[in-house]
Every structure is written in structure tokens, then in C-alpha cells.
Simulated assay, not measured.
Amino acid sequence: MARTEKAISKTSVNPRSVPKKKTKIKKGYAGWLFASPWIIGLLLFYALPVVSSLYFSFTTYSILQPGDFIGFKNYSDLIHDHLFWKSIGNTVYFAVIFVPLSIIFGVALAMMLNMRVKGMSIYRTVFFLPTLVPQVALAVLWMWLLNPGFGLVNGMLDKIGISGPAWLGSETWSKPSLIFMSLWGIGQAVVIYLAGLGDISNEYYEAAEVDGANWFQRTFYITLPLLTPVIFYNLVMGVIGAFQQFTLPYTLTQGSGKPNNSLTFYVSYLYDNGFKYFKMGYASAMAWILFIIIMILTLLIFWSSKRWVHYQGK
């Protein structure tokens, strides 16, 4: 009898556990209820447009008309589109030069702004201010500065006996000018580098000084290796941002891409096809090609990071 009573007591349900289960279920419902606005927004404004754009890339959809299903015709037309390849070339040119330069100048500026000098907060603010300027205002400002006739840049070059080029009016100098303008606004990346420099322990530098390491050795064997996680982050974001360059070149050329389409970037051409020529199916195909390119480049950077990114304590 005693054994059967023990068996019954083990198999019987504890009445206290039932309210706990109901409480967990209620909390789960409450959690989903509070998260529902974000979930609905994610589905309506992200997931649905992504799926729709994939479908539209196989159609002749033009905003005004639903269009017909044409399979891979948009993609095949892009292969034979000269301006499509021109826009890719301009974008790759910008990304290949701008991203490395932004990392080099960003790290160098961060190291200078990390020095213990009186009034350093003022210098940091000065270098960060250009990032607060809207892209349209930035474009107007540099159009005046780089004006070949009365611009400040060519005026300063004339004083030292150098005849300045046409800058934005020259096919040769238009993209370097855009790269220079973009480098003017790397203050946000500099702030991230400063945070990374502040995270490096002083114990490493103290040990290096004891071993007799000079400034260059401390920089190349301590600072840069331990800063690679931050460089890795800015590299990924820089590549993505470079391939999505739009506002600055579009404002500088009023959407024309002049001279000779040297400032027609990929996203600019995508925008023209979608909202200027109403070829939304064509633009959707371009958007998915851009997505694939960025995804491949990001995966390559992540794959290579195992060889050059070093984390503290590892």
C-alpha cells in the first residue's frame, strides 16, 4: 500500500504548477502583443516589399500598369545595357579608392585625436561637424569650392602657380572630386575608431615600453592589430555604403551624371529607371543584382576576417 501511495503521489499533478504554466502562457501572449507593432511593421514595410520586388523583377511593372510576366528578360537586357556597366564601373572605382582611403585617414585622425592634448574635445567636435551637414548642402558647398572659374580651390592653386582642372566638369577629375568630398565627412567613422582605441588596455603599451618598443613598433604591433575588429566593422559598412552612393553624385549633376556619365552611379541609374522612366521591373532587377553583389562582397570580407582580425584575449 505504501508503495502504491508513493507511486500515485509521484504521478499526480502538483496543483501549484498549473497556475505557473498559465502565468507563463499569459506572459508569452503579452510579449507577442507588445512586439506585434514591430512584427507587423517588419512584415509590411520590409518582408512584403522584398518579396514584391523579386516578383516585379520578372515583369514589366511600371507603377502605372501592373505589367506582364517576362521571366529573365530584364536581367538579359541589363547585360546588354551599356549605361548599366558604366554605372557599375563608376561605383566600383569609387568603392575601391574611397573605402581604403577612409580607413587610412580615419585611423590616422583617430590616433591624433586620441592624444592627451589640452582642448582635444574641441578638435574632435570640429572633425565630427561635417557629418552633420546634409548631403544636399554638402554638394552645393563643394560645387562652389570646386568651381573652375571662381572656386576657392582653384584660386588657391593659382596663387602657387598651378592651373587647377575643371574638377566636376572633367571626366578625369569628377570621381576623384567626389571621393575627396566623401572623405571630408568621415567623422562618424573616426568616432568609432576613437571608441576602439579607448578599449585597448594600457597594460599592452606599458609592457611594450618596458621591452624598449618605440612609437612605430607600438602602433604596428599593438594598436593596429587590436583595432582590427573596429576596422573590420567600418570596412563592411564602408563597402555597403560605397555601393549605395546616391545623394551626393545625384545632387551634383542634377541626375544627369555629367560629364559623359562619369558620375552616373549604380543606385542613381536604378533610381532613374524606377522613378524617372517608370521601368520599375527593370529597376527591381537592378536592385537584386546589387543585393547579390553586396552579399558576396560581405561574405568575402567575413571569410577573410579570420586571417587578419584579432580580438583581445585571443
Rank of each mutant, 00 (worst) to 15 (best):
D77W: 04
Y55D: 00
L64D: 00
S256I: 08
T253L: 02
W144K: 12
P259E: 04
Y311Q: 05
L78D: 00
D77S: 11
A139F: 01
V210D: 05
T125S: 15
L297P: 07
V99M: 09
L157D: 04
V92L: 14
Y221K: 15
T219A: 09
Y205N: 07
G185K: 14
N234D: 08
V239P: 03
A47C: 12
L183M: 12
G71L: 11
F275V: 05
K314Y: 00
T247A: 14
K314M: 09
T91I: 09
M181H: 03
Y193C: 04
V107I: 09
E209D: 14
T131D: 04
I294C: 12
L113M: 10
D272Y: 07
I294Y: 07
M1G: 14
S305P: 06
A283R: 02
G155N: 10
L299M: 15
G155M: 09
T59L: 06
T251G: 05
F128T: 03
I8L: 14
S170W: 02
L64I: 14
S304T: 15
A207P: 11
E209H: 14
W85D: 01
L54T: 04
Y61G: 04
K279Y: 08
S17K: 15
F94L: 13
A95P: 09
L235A: 05
T223E: 01
G169T: 05
F302L: 15
S12E: 08
L33C: 08
V96A: 12
L248R: 05
I70P: 02
P165A: 11
R124T: 09
V309N: 04
Y75E: 00
V140K: 12
Y221H: 15
P66M: 10
L64Y: 13
W308V: 10
M286H: 01
T131M: 08
W173E: 00
L101F: 11
G281H: 01
I296M: 13
T60Y: 08
Q312V: 07
S57W: 02
S53N: 09
P134K: 07
F105P: 04
S36E: 00
W215I: 13
Y271P: 05
N202V: 13
L178P: 03
W167I: 03
F127L: 10
P66A: 11
F278S: 09
G185V: 14
I296E: 01
V133I: 15
M120N: 10
L183F: 10
V126F: 15
Q188P: 01
T4N: 10
V136P: 04
S170T: 07
S9R: 15
W288H: 06
V140P: 03
V117L: 14
I292F: 13
T228K: 07
V190Y: 03
P225E: 08
W32G: 07
P130C: 05
A285Y: 03
W288V: 02
M295I: 11
S304I: 13
K20A: 11
Y250E: 04
G41V: 06
H80L: 11
E206M: 13
R124P: 06
S201L: 07
V92T: 11
N147M: 06
T125D: 03
L54R: 04
F232V: 10
S121V: 14
